[in-house]
């Protein structure tokens, strides 16, 4: 049994079926990507798995427990954390305090026993996420690249078992992407955190993930390794267009 099993996830918004019986699983320590055109239902999957939207049907089995329809607070405590496409830093406080809020969540309250440990943990996160030079800068003053990093840092600060990253590279230059990409790999390799990634930056996406789930119009159209996916006819038709292979091999 996988760490996270999603079975026949179904959600309808009025007449639109946003996720139509989507089934996939995420193993412990795996890096999975979700690929699809805009409006395919990628973020809706994240919203359902993280509890922000109640699914209409299906199962979400995490660690052997069905967490479907539970609150975001409950799911985060279990160890699934999501980031947002549009960054959501806590404004009016600095980077350090942003991460401190994460350490005050119920999940970390159990693990961190005192303020010294808390400080150490926050500093560790700041260190691996390369936020040291802005640690005491108000988030209101930070450029997008740092805010994107902070978004990932906040999610890692609660020691999650699964991180759902919603377009962490969107709007960034290549040089800004690299450090975030490194952080994601580091979290994955060092702590065995499973990563589920939505991203339109194909080159970085394909390099980062080990397995891809391609969806379109709310349905899973393909699943496989990045190499298999770029050759898949359905994926090429719906998303990659001709020359998809070149992107990956470049």
């Amino acid at each position: 049994m996988a760490l996270l099993d999603i079975n026949n996830l179904y959600k309808k918004f009025g007449g639109l079926v946003a996720t139509n019986n989507i089934t996939f699983s995420v193993e412990k320590g795996e890096r999975v990507g979700i690929l699809g055109p805009n409006g395919a239902g990628k973020t809706t999957i994240f919203n359902q798995v993280s509890g922000f939207i109640k699914p209409d049907g299906g199962e979400i089995i995490f660690n052997g427990e069905n967490i479907i329809g539970k609150s975001p607070e409950f799911i985060a405590k279990k160890g699934i954390v999501r980031t947002f496409q549009i960054v959501k830093p806590f404004k009016g406080m600095n980077v350090y305090d942003n991460l401190k809020v994460a350490t005050l969540s119920p999940k970390m309250k159990e693990e961190i026993k005192n303020e010294t440990e808390r400080k150490k943990w926050i500093e560790y996160i700041i260190d691996i996420c390369e936020l040291k030079n802005v640690a005491y800068t108000m988030t209101d003053l930070l450029p997008q690249g740092y805010l994107k990093k902070l978004e990932v840092a906040k999610s890692l600060a609660i020691k999650p078992k699964v991180v759902l990253l919603d377009e962490p590279f969107a709007g960034l230059t290549h040089s800004e992407i690299e450090p975030i990409s490194k952080v994601i790999i580091k979290a994955n390799e060092v702590s065995g955190t499973s990563i589920v990634l939505i991203e339109h930056r194909l080159k970085e996406f394909m390099q980062l993930v080990e397995r891809v789930i391609a969806i379109d119009y709310g349905e899973k159209i393909a699943e496989g390794t990045p190499e298999e996916i770029v050759k898949n006819k359905k994926v090429i038709e719906s998303y990659l267009g001709k020359g998809g292979e070149e992107i990956v091999n470049s």
Partner: peptide, 21 residues
Amino acid sequence: GLILKSLRSDEDAARALGIKI
């Protein structure tokens, strides 16, 4: 107080971390 301040800018961001808003 820090958690209260986090709610001011984004309740969803706090919930995503598991904070019982």
